[in-house]
């Protein structure tokens, strides 16, 4: 009995000492080694036809950073961010802006695009119609607009931006894209 009591006391004492004195001294954060990009879920592949009639697959854009933007000409926030995308495309040629419009009204879409004079000078901005939301809703589960998905050079899904979350033409965002482009 006495031995048992002693054992319990020693055990409790040991645990307490471990808790108070056994804690490791806080270490300064160690620089993380530059590792390869984390494994990301792959973006599903899909075909799309741009307004000028050329057909692509998303997978054909591998090797470039893609900003997959879901938008509509009737959506005011989408119109607000459109010039930012154009400014970004002008600055970063390794980034493709794939703007999929969910407009039902093709004429309204074409009219909006025609008003964007700079667009013709930017081959890295691709505009296509996703009339039945076959890509936006059925593949990417997007029902509210605008939403933009950042896809890395390997076709991996990096991040989703909902609404007017960032200024696409800001140096901060471009810095993030550069970091993504330079990641091994």
């Amino acid at each position: 009995m006495r031995n048992l009591l002693l054992l319990i006391l020693v055990l409790l004492l040991g645990l307490s000492i471990h808790h108070f004195y056994g804690r490791s001294v806080p270490q300064a954060p160690q620089p993380q080694p530059v590792s390869s990009a984390p494994t990301r879920a792959a973006a599903p592949d899909f075909p799309f036809t741009t307004l000028d009639g050329k057909t692509y697959q998303l997978s054909e854009l591998r090797g470039k950073i893609v900003l997959l933007n879901f938008w509509a000409s009737w959506c005011a926030p989408c119109k607000v961010e459109f010039p930012q995308f154009l400014a970004l495309a002008k600055e970063r040629k390794n980034v493709v802006i794939l703007a999929l419009s969910v407009d039902h009204d093709r004429q309204a879409l074409e009219k909006f695009v025609a008003d964007q004079a700079e667009l013709k000078k930017l081959p890295n901005v691709l505009i296509a119609q996703d009339k039945d939301k076959a890509v936006a809703q059925d593949l990417f589960q997007t029902i509210r607009f605008p939403e933009t998905i950042l896809i890395d050079t390997q076709g991996g899904l990096v991040r989703k931006y909902v609404g007017l979350e960032v200024d696409w033409s800001s140096t901060a965002f471009m810095g993030q894209l550069d970091g993504l482009a330079n990641a091994p």
């Binding site: 879920a41 973006a43 599903p44 593949l139 990417f140 589960q141 997007t142 029902i143 509210r144 939403e147 899904l157 991040r159 989703k160 909902v162 609404g163």
Partner: peptide, 23 residues
């Protein structure tokens, strides 16, 4: 699905309306 919300779980309506849907 997205890194910014890691660890969070959503109800169906909540997921769609908050724009957290993914493939």
């Amino acid at each position: 699905s997205w890194a910014e919300q890691k660890g969070e779980w959503f109800a169906p309506w909540q997921l769609l309306l908050s724009g957290q849907g993914s493939p």
